[in-house]
């Protein structure tokens, strides 16, 4: 048995307490995100006779998770970074939008009955 093995065994149960705390700190470092861990509400817009609200989760990275909800059934199109998604809401829907690498400004537009509503979220950080 070498010196390090003696040291390791000498800890007794304390090694698991200490190692557990250190391992947890390192794991939490890997999963840590400096961003709210909840839906961020971006407000409501009046569109096609109903009120639609938009919320997002996380940052616009490779994808951007958005949630649309309306007070009454809503049919329309979502426009984002050149993509179009058909939206048919009875209550709420969640979708992952693909974010192109070269996209700098985050703007989400809903179109219905020749009307449109825009959520301008601003410029990406990187």
């Amino acid at each position: 048995m070498n010196a390090w093995a003696i040291w390791w065994r000498g800890h007794g149960a304390w090694r698991w307490v200490c190692l557990g705390l250190v391992t947890m700190a390192l794991v939490l470092t890997v999963v840590y995100e400096p961003i709210a861990l909840s839906w961020t509400d971006h407000g409501e817009r009046e569109l096609a006779g109903t009120t639609v609200s938009l919320a997002t989760w996380g940052r616009p990275d490779e994808t951007f998770e958005v949630r649309l909800s309306s007070k009454a059934p809503f049919k329309g199109e979502l426009h984002f970074a050149g993509q179009r998604e058909i939206i048919d809401l009875t209550d709420a829907a969640e979708l992952d939008l693909r974010v192109p690498d070269d996209l700098t400004v985050i703007e989400i537009k809903l179109v219905a009955n020749d009307q449109e509503a825009t959520w301008h979220l601003g410029r990406r950080l990187r």
Partner: peptide, 26 residues
């Protein structure tokens, strides 16, 4: 803090105020 509640850092030249770029909060 962005609208999607991400904390970030921007860096500016102290003389000209030119935007050098951004770095992650962490």
């Amino acid at each position: 803090n962005t609208r999607w509640e991400e904390i970030g850092r921007l860096w500016f030249d102290p003389v000209t105020g030119h935007l050098n770029g951004s770095t992650a909060w962490f």
